[in-house]
Amino acid sequence: MHEYSLVQALITRVEAEARRRGALKVHGLSVRMGELAGVDPELFQTAYDTFRAGTVCAEVPLTLKQVAASWSCPTCRAAIPRGAALRCQACGEPARLDEGGDALTLDGIDLEVP
């Protein structure tokens, strides 16, 4: 259940950014979550709903962008079929995880500023 500590880190970061920019209100925040981020999206949402009360995020909807994990060969760029061994059949190279497959990032915040 590390989702709770992640959400705490997220809200702390949003609060710091809102303060830094002298924001009057936070209107939205968007988080990108890869399939291999090691985080359960539903648990993350539940943790967010639990912890946002009493913070600048209390009324703020969370937009979760989920990214499926995909792999490809670093040499010939061929895609590795989902569920297959993570090695290129043609080159024998270990596959590389495509961008975003393990992401866990705060992409952006919508702030109301004076």
Partner: peptide, 24 residues
């Protein structure tokens, strides 16, 4: 403040961060 017409209304600003939640 709105700088287009100087009306004094607040502005909604999208702030791009692209920052790892585990950055700390």
């Amino acid at each position: 403040m709105c700088t287009t017409c100087g009306c004094g209304d607040t502005e909604l600003v999208p702030v791009e961060l692209h920052e790892k939640i585990l950055a700390g």
